[in-house]
Amino acid sequence: MGKILAVTLVIVAIVSAVPIVMHTWPPPEDISTHGYAIDKQMDETMLEAGFSFLAAQLLLALFIWQYAGRQKQDKLKTFPGGAKGLVIAALVLVGSEILALGVIGQKAWANVYFAPPDKDAMTIQAQAGQFAFYFRYPGADGKFGGMHPDKIDEGNQNFFGLDPENDVDSRDDIVAAELAIPANRQINLMLHSKDVGHSFYVRELRIQQDFVPGLDLAVHFTATKPGRYEIVCTQLCGLGHYNMKAYLSVLFQEEFEKWLKERAGQ
């Protein structure tokens, strides 16, 4: 029975690794300027984790194969180096892995979060509510009008609670249900939640950031490849969570300007 277990372990280990090695279900192509660092980090981690996984499973299988069923007359053998050797091995192996991944690899994180947004980044506001995203562009004046939760009225399409009668800034604000952005321009996206926690996730952008009620957060990114991508809510937000999505349209500059003009005219 020990030998069967050993063989099973080998099969399990190899079969588990196959779809990853073969890229059977690959992540979508990265369309951001920062994503390459995340992907690289992911590949390196996969290499190290994959090695640890295979090594441990195969060693386990090997030892079970060799030593299962041995009886009293068979000599007990001590692992060369003993416990001390293994502790040192763990410290060196895992320690170097941690240094490699943890310290050097933090660059990928720093790319996204430590650099302040560019001065000429385009600011857009995203609002998440049960169960839809809305996006707001400041319009010609470059200023967002103030938000008044008591004025929110979905029936009247006032998703952000704007007050155009008294608030000049809000009059030219453009509100859309999809996020259109120009390619190759940095976007500073301000995240505001109307009700509960939500999250902004675009797989292709390698961006995921929660909407935290009461706390307006911002992320900035630059998309490079025009196209239409799904924005998905990843924070459990209630009964419609499964269906909470919007689209990100990455457009060429002139298309984007056209798009914006159309909305402004409405």
Binding site: M1, G2, L5, A56, L59, L60, F63, I64, Y67, A68, G69, R70, Q71, K72, D74, K75, L76, K77, T78, F79, G82, A83, L86, V87, A89, A90, L91, L93, V94, G95, E97, I98, L101, G102, Q106
Partner: peptide, 29 residues
């Protein structure tokens, strides 16, 4: 992130101790 990665060290030590003890044992199934 750092202590999270560090926690793999004792976990690895445990795994290696289990594996190393299996070596040369009289494993009964």
């Amino acid at each position: 992130s750092f202590p999270t990665l560090v926690i793999t060290i004792p976990a690895t030590v445990l795994t290696l101790i289990w594996l190393g003890s299996l070596y040369g044992s009289r494993l009964q199934i």
